[in-house]
Design a protein around this nucleic acid. Structure first.
Lengths: 192, 192, 192, 192
DNA sequence: ATTTAATCGAGACGGTACGTCATGTCTTCGG
DNA sequence: CCGAAGACATGACGTACCGTCTCGATTAAAT
């Protein structure tokens, strides 16, 4: 009855190897480029791929970079579940801070923000990215609140923005450390 | 032929009208462009000025934007002194949030930050600018601590970064409001 | 011994409908495109056919165009035999000029020649095609010479090239008419 | 009081060296490329020039190639004035045939025609080019007619098209020579 | 009836070239 | 000497086709 379902697929299928190559090349270049903008041409060449293949699957260069980074972020900063709210939050903070320090994430993240400076479309994508990150913190906080570790009237969105606002502010300005101690401090400050 | 008295300068002097036109055009475009990049070409054309005139007086496009903006923003956020720490902090937060909201400041500021991400020179200027702002918060907090309104062991730098981190994060992402209530909430959250 | 003959055929046979659709689409596009290049992609899409089907049966785009055109033009210019050299030549000229004029032939022929300039394979096919046409003129001229209507020492190849050169030059440049009067004129000029 | 004339020129003037470099590079590449298409990128690179400079002064790649060729043609085939119509025409034919034989003109001309195959705009320019060539022949023929060397009722445009049609036909098909003898023959055939 | 193989439409793939845009530098001219 | 206009080399952008290469679905001959 449903003719949409009747045609499962036609034509050659997407080459997963190309997708991987593009994402890997993007992250690699993002990390190595030292803040310099990364061009579509460069990514395509590094991945051994035609530009069209890039544009076929991603609406913009930024989307590629972001997907590359999101993948990495998901694997570097898993959602912790230690059983206690302070434990979870400190674990997340520690993992976040640590992932944001070393290569390839740190330079990549920085370059991505720089790219977002120019490209309104990428800026929008960045917003999506940060929303998924916020969701991770929200999960932790709501779980803690349900366990009674947090007063029911605390504004969770405010806390989330304090957490990530603090992180980005320090990360981008680089005027103060983002180490394990800081992770403990910000956790205490938010929950204390 | 020059009726002006003893002028230790030769040749045509800087055209103040051009300077004003450039600054005004920059601010206007910044406000109107809705996040889209503002090009040197565009500013020059809008100001009815040659590109070289721009490059002659400012090291980079960002410097123009910054000058255009600071000129306007200088007096917007004074340092409050209400006598109490929560009062001061809330007043500053309210003023900061409000100043950053309305056009043309909001889109202009947004674009400016984005340009700063690319232009190291502008980033430095921005750093000076934000350092001034941090100093204002530090003043308030230290005054409050000296008055005993804040435990002596609270990490003031952490608090400052939470405050401005929160502000910038919300301001740039625009996913949640920055109103008077929020100013009260963030004050409570930080001092509570 | 010939394994080709041993196995008459296996598998699906060529789809004649697809062939027709391609040829028709090619001719149609050729006629409509007004000199603009006709892409393989466009032909395939217009014919509702995969590109591979095109490449499976024709070595190049030009070959498709040529087949599309010759199929239609084959019977357009018969070899006249009026009994007199001027009559024959004028008849051939008139028929040639007329056949080349109306749509869809004119723009199609124009595009075809242009494609032939790029595609060596197509150029060869075109050469065969034009050689056939030259042979028709040669027949007329030699017949006339044998009848004594032409001095025995006239260079027939020169005349042929003048005849077709004139035709193609006017046809491709389109700066002057190719009508019945012109057919009479060129005949007179060549034989006079 | 024409304000258009009041502003003679403003801004940097066209760089003649760049123009020359582009034209030279174009002709050189056209001659060397052996029929392969010549890309804008290649011309620009060979001339040490930005693509934009090309597009600033010529509407299309073809226009560049054509201007390069026209320059060369004007210098290779001057308008002869021997005093007699047959002499002039034979001289022009000889010069034309000869110029069209050797490098760099021959391959360049051939490539140009090939390029015109694709680019309708270039095709139009080619028409202009051929018109100037036709004008040279027209001058010779009319001068001869005025001297009484040609019947007043001969259709001069027909003769011109026979002359150049013959040339292009042989030049492009290459099936028969274009030498001094041929120049004599075509002259005789047209005037005889 | 089953197997086998070539066809079909569809469309992804690695490429090349296109024409446009912005950047920052450099002339040129009038004031 | 200043300021405008704008040409310049550079290099990224996103698009259009190229010709090749899978895909799953037909379709017909050979078994």
């Amino acid at each position: 009855m449903n003719s949409k379902e009747a045609r499962p697929h036609t034509g050659r299928r997407r080459n997963e190897a190309a997708r991987r190559a593009i994402l890997d090349a993007a992250l690699h270049l993002l990390a190595d480029s030292d803040g310099a903008p990364v061009s579509v041409e460069t990514i395509a060449r590094a991945a051994g791929v035609g530009k069209q293949t890039l544009y076929r699957w991603w609406p913009s260069k930024g989307a590629v970079l972001l997907e590359a980074l999101t993948e990495r972020a998901a694997q570097d900063v898993p959602s912790p579940d230690t059983g206690s709210l302070p434990g979870d939050l400190r674990a997340l903070a520690t993992a976040t801070f640590q992932a944001a320090q070393g290569p390839p994430t740190a330079p990549a993240l920085r370059t991505l923000v720089r790219e977002a400076a120019r490209d309104p479309h990428l800026a929008e994508l960045m917003a999506t990215f940060t929303e998924t990150r916020r969701a991770a913190v929200r999960l932790i906080l709501e779980r803690g609140r349900d366990r009674g570790e947090l007063p029911a009237d605390r504004d969770i969105d405010l806390m989330i923005d304090q957490f990530y606002g603090f992180f980005w502010y320090r990360f981008l300005l680089g005027h103060a450390p983002l180490d394990a101690t800081t992770a403990q401090d910000i956790t205490d400050s938010l929950l204390g």
